[in-house]
Design a protein around this nucleic acid. Structure first.
Lengths: 205, 205
DNA sequence: CGAGCCCTTGACCACCCGGTCAAGGGTTTC
DNA sequence: GAAACCCTTGACCGGGTGGTCAAGGGCTCG
């Protein structure tokens, strides 16, 4: 149980070491194919060490997941703290998300996996609700200030996440760079989509 | 080995039954937590039946995945066959994707999982390259015809898929409906994003 | 110095997994 | 009718799984 236990400096180091190695292996190999024995062998310790720091393999995974979502959110909020214009905040949020993903590419795969099993997916859903609400607030602000046409702020926020995450996935999962073109495309799609009214497509048909 | 084997009508039925049941269980429970025994027990047959029709559990999963990607593509192409305007084709493709996802919600989870393990992910990547190319061609057409500003057609196509998939995920995985508002939002974001030039955000800052 | 706690070890456990296979029932075919 | 093939059964296998635990090392205090 990692809950109430007091850790020495050495203990904290060992724990971090396990988290880091497990994260890497989970991302490379998948969660289930990576056994607890793989992890402790990789770190070079006995199996009991794992269960000294974590109640179970599932709990470790949940911890990795929750910490990641938390850290991403912190980065986003820090990035847009100074901007006052809602659309500028959205753009800064997008850029922060992409930068964070580039620095934590392993996490992308873990998140994909987490969707596929209920006990992990529920943690994700909670995180997503929060993230969507964050963005949706700025979208609604932009609507209220007359900067963009009205619309479903939640669905718009979800779309924005869809763009940033899919671009991250495609360009980062295989080790590619996330170059400026891609970032510019993300911004173009999101801000352009927000700026459009649903009626625009009447022009097309 | 399902390869060269000749199946009677009864055989084909049994095989389909296994595929259908396995798909459902994989989506509900996850791939690894669903054992071959679970599947054959659920269908009410002996274990040997499974290995009569499929060489392995992994192969079954790959088959489900590939068939799904193929079917989705067929639906998309059928949907946009009549339209000539590139942007109209894109819109029809988006609507077809959303409709297909609504009719195959289990697949969404399987795809998420598939990303997390290399042997499955590689099948996905191949499918995605094709899907991206399909969309990117219409995007490029629209650029060439002067309907939208220039840009990275591949990244734009990827963004479109990001929007449609994320909206599908959020609104379908938990059994919600995919109502018209959401579809309209998807179309607004995608066509609006395409219509925007990257320079638009200069207005904002 | 010794008490007490943090940390580590690795053999061990019960369980279940994917996959095999010899045997036999049903259908089809000639 | 019988040969040939499709399909089904379920006991069985080797091996790996997540998790436990008694035992002990070593650091940190009083």
């Amino acid at each position: 149980m990692s809950n109430g236990r007091r850790l020495t400096a050495r203990g904290r180091e060992r724990r971090d070491e396990l988290v880091a190695y497990a994260t890497r292996r989970f991302a490379e190999n998948g969660f289930h194919p990576t056994s607890v024995s793989d992890i402790v062998d990789g770190v070079g310790v006995g199996k009991g060490v794992f269960y000294w720091y974590f109640p179970s393999k599932d709990d470790l995974f949940l911890e990795i997941l929750r910490d990641a979502l938390l850290d991403l959110r912190r980065c986003q909020q820090a990035a847009l703290a100074d901007a006052e214009d809602p659309l500028q905040r959205i753009e800064l949020g997008i850029r922060a998300s992409l930068a964070w993903s580039a620095d934590h590419r392993e996490i992308l795969k873990l998140v994909m996996f987490a969707w596929s099993e209920e006990n992990f997916a529920s943690a994700l859903k909670k995180g997503r609700r929060v993230a969507t609400a964050d963005t949706a607030r700025h979208v609604q602000d932009a609507i209220d200030e007359g900067l963009i046409p009205a619309g479903d702020a939640d669905a718009l926020a979800t779309s924005i996440r869809g763009v940033t995450e899919e671009l991250s996935r495609v360009h980062l999962v295989d080790g590619d760079r996330l170059d400026d073109t891609v970032v510019a495309t993300a911004v173009r799609m999101c801000l352009g989509g927000l700026a459009a009214s649903g009626a625009d497509r009447a022009e097309i048909g």
